[in-house]
Measured scan of single mutants.
Amino acid sequence: MTEYKLVVVGAGGVGKSALTIQLIQNHFVDEYDPTIEDSYRKQVVIDGETCLLDILDTAGQEEYSAMRDQYMRTGEGFLCVFAINNTKSFEDIHHYREQIKRVKDSEDVPMVLVGNKCDLPSRTVDTKQAQDLARSYGIPFIETSAKTRQGVDDAFYTLVREIRKHKEKMSKDGKKKKKKSKTKCVIM
């Protein structure tokens, strides 16, 4: 069974824990209790493949930012979460993405942009803004509501699919490099 290491990042209060708990335990946590770091595991079937999701729910508070490099190193894919009623959390996505790329030393890291709290009427981040940002990053965008469960499975499952595509691409690139290195030079 394939294991996928997913990391949920975003500013404090955007609903990272609520999304994760909704996926794992099928219930909505409405009281806000700032996370330092929590880890969850769940076995699911995605596109006919049974897999184990190892999900790291991270601290959004700035005082825990020193811990970010460590979990970013171990993560295979990242859910970059903002709240649709919090423009600052949307603007912060850029910083999370840049930090992930720096730590992973790669421009090509599996990510999904997630606009959470889409059940709320007080939207300050337009869907088109988020779609445009995701398009500019070359990553999928999904709106979710941890409260109603809308888009929750889709967000995590899409990230797994992005990781699969990335692994497939990397193995193809690896095979191309191996083929090239088999060419021999004969000096007579």
Rank of each mutant, 00 (worst) to 15 (best):
V125A: 14
V125G: 10
V125C: 12
V125D: 05
V125H: 06
D126E: 11
D126R: 03
D126V: 07
D126L: 08
D126I: 04
D126A: 08
D126H: 08
D126C: 10
T127S: 13
T127I: 11
T127N: 11
T127C: 11
T127R: 07
T127Q: 10
T127E: 11
T127K: 06
T127M: 12
T127G: 11
T127P: 08
T127V: 11
K128M: 11
K128W: 08
K128L: 10
K128V: 11
K128S: 13
K128T: 11
K128I: 10
K128Q: 14
K128H: 13
Q129R: 13
Q129T: 12
Q129F: 04
Q129V: 06
Q129L: 11
Q129M: 13
A130G: 09
A130K: 02
A130D: 02
A130M: 13
A130Q: 03
A130F: 15
A130N: 03
A130Y: 15
Q131K: 10
Q131W: 06
Q131L: 11
Q131S: 10
Q131T: 11
Q131C: 14
Q131V: 09
Q131R: 15
Q131E: 13
D132M: 08
D132N: 11
D132Y: 03
D132K: 07
D132G: 06
D132E: 13
D132H: 08
D132T: 05
L133G: 03
L133R: 03
L133D: 06
L133H: 07
L133V: 12
L133K: 07
L133F: 14
L133W: 07
L133S: 05
L133E: 10
L133A: 09
L133Q: 08
A134L: 02
A134G: 08
A134E: 04
A134R: 01
R135I: 03
R135M: 05
R135H: 12
R135Y: 08
R135T: 10
S136D: 14
S136A: 12
S136T: 05
S136M: 14
S136E: 15
S136Y: 14
S136F: 07
S136R: 09
S136V: 09
Y137L: 15
Y137V: 08
Y137A: 05
Y137Q: 05
Y137R: 02
Y137K: 05
Y137G: 03
G138D: 06
G138N: 12
G138V: 01
G138R: 04
I139Y: 13
I139G: 01
I139S: 03
I139L: 06
F141N: 01
F141S: 02
I142L: 10
I142P: 00
E143D: 13
T144K: 00
S145T: 09
S145F: 02
S145P: 00
S145R: 03
A146F: 00
A146I: 00
A146S: 00
K147E: 13
R149Y: 13
R149F: 03
R149A: 04
R149E: 10
Q150S: 14
Q150N: 13
Q150R: 10
G151R: 04
G151L: 10
V152N: 07
V152P: 02
V152A: 05
V152F: 04
V152C: 10
V152Q: 03
D153L: 07
D153W: 01
D153I: 10
D153F: 02
D153T: 09
D153C: 13
D153P: 06
D153H: 04
D153K: 04
D153G: 06
D154K: 10
D154W: 04
D154H: 09
D154V: 05
D154Q: 13
D154I: 06
D154T: 10
D154C: 07
D154L: 10
D154P: 05
D154G: 07
D154S: 12
D154R: 07
A155N: 00
A155G: 05
A155E: 00
A155T: 03
A155S: 04
A155L: 03
A155D: 00
A155Q: 00
A155W: 00
A155V: 08
F156E: 01
F156L: 12
F156C: 07
F156P: 00
F156A: 04
F156H: 04
F156R: 00
F156I: 15
F156T: 04
F156W: 03
F156Y: 08
Y157D: 13
Y157E: 15
Y157S: 15
Y157I: 14
Y157T: 14
Y157L: 10
Y157P: 02
Y157W: 06
Y157G: 10
T158F: 09
T158D: 04
T158L: 08
T158Y: 14
T158S: 06
T158V: 04
T158R: 06
T158M: 10
L159T: 01
L159D: 00
L159G: 01
L159M: 02
L159Y: 00
L159W: 01
L159F: 01
L159S: 00
V160N: 02
V160D: 01
V160K: 06
V160M: 02
V160F: 04
V160T: 03
V160R: 02
V160E: 01
V160L: 03
V160W: 02
V160P: 00
V160G: 02
V160C: 01
E162P: 00
E162R: 07
E162I: 02
E162H: 09
E162C: 04
E162A: 07
E162V: 02
R164L: 03
R164T: 04
R164G: 05
R164W: 02
R164F: 08
R164V: 07
R164Y: 03
K165S: 05
K165L: 07
K165G: 11
H166N: 12
H166D: 07
H166F: 12
H166T: 07
H166W: 04
H166Y: 12
H166C: 05
H166M: 06
H166S: 10
H166G: 09
K167I: 03
K167V: 03
K167N: 14
E168V: 09
E168D: 12
E168G: 13
K169S: 12
K169I: 14
K169C: 13
K169D: 12
K169Y: 05
K169L: 06
M170G: 12
M170C: 13
M170V: 12
M170W: 11
K172T: 15
K172S: 15
D173F: 09
D173T: 08
D173V: 02
D173R: 01
D173C: 04
G174V: 08
K175V: 07
K175C: 06
K175F: 06
K176R: 08
K176Y: 08
K176G: 13
K176F: 06
K177G: 14
K177I: 12
K177W: 06
K177L: 15
K178P: 15
K178G: 15
K178N: 15
K178S: 11
K178H: 11
K180L: 13
K180V: 02
S181E: 14
S181A: 08
S181R: 06
K182W: 01
T183F: 00
T183D: 15
V186N: 15
V186L: 10
I187S: 15
M188T: 15
M188S: 15
M188P: 15
